[in-house]
Amino acid sequence: MAAEAVERSHRPSHPDMLHRLKFRAMGCEMLAVVDRETAPVKLSQVPEWFEEWEQSLSRFRYDSELTRLNQTCGQPVRVSEILWDVFLTASKAERMTNGLVTPTLLDAIIEAGYDRPFDELPDRLDQIQPDPAAPISDSVLTTSQPLTAISCNDSSRTITLPIGMGLDFGGVAKGWAAHRAMQRLQAEGPALIDAGGDIAISGPRADGDPWQIGIADPFHAGENIEVLYLNACGVATSGKDRRRWMHDGIFQHHIIDPLTGHPAESDLLTVTVIAPDVMQAEAAAKAAFILGSRAGLEWIEARPEFTGVFVLDNGEMLYSENADEYL
């Protein structure tokens, strides 16, 4: 005990300094954090980076590069490095999830009523009080075209969409942006980017400790249902507790099951996944949500690089076997 007391007394007395920058982008609250004593120069540039990426990747901007691409079906279009990189990221996510997470569901998400930025939806359900008894839209078996239906040329960076197909990068774009911003910012020190809940972390804190990240309690706004201790990784949560709305009198959410073309009917309320990077975490969380609690947990545990924390509709929580490493 005495030795411990001496060690504490000799610990450097500099305070932990977190430099935070909050802003809005991509329809979400964003947070950029750098852990260092002096002010990081690049931190103030982060909103500009997101603005540039959003102008390329947003389906809600009539003059974005993605909107223009979606309007030129059947014709090869040379795209920017940004859009090309996100397209490749979406392709990886689709392969990793066996097609469960695909950006080719633009028509389905619009048909479900998500045809404008979420903040502007007339019948959105902001309160996160899940109602398991709420009816979900009837499932009608439809087939979504995979990304392999798209002709693309790596050397010329051109994409040719089949007629009738549109792309919606959605969460993939957000995860990609968080990861890219974190990579740029980590030159300033240990960095964290929180893109509306999808979080990219460069490595341990300046003092070597892990970052403490809360998992939002879907039943009590603002509270944590669990606390994670994370180093270099990505963590993301998908669920139906947010981005819910009513369309034609039917409860809808934004996670589309490609097998049905409708919002996924899942017994899960939220799925949180820790992965080597936030892009994988985002895709894995969405895939597990679509699969449901049983198959979703099996899918996560079959991939040891992933860790899952599930919250079911009834409030029950499920953890993958390796979750203890982060709790």
């Binding site: 929180d194 809940g197 939002a216 944590n224 949560t237 139906k240 947010r242 709790l327």
Partner: peptide, 26 residues
Amino acid sequence: QVPKKKKNKNNDGGGGGGTVTQTKSS
């Protein structure tokens, strides 16, 4: 920063006074 809560496998899950941010459905 708020003093960090020590890693504790037996924590009640509802704390998080030292959390930097929160992952949530987006």
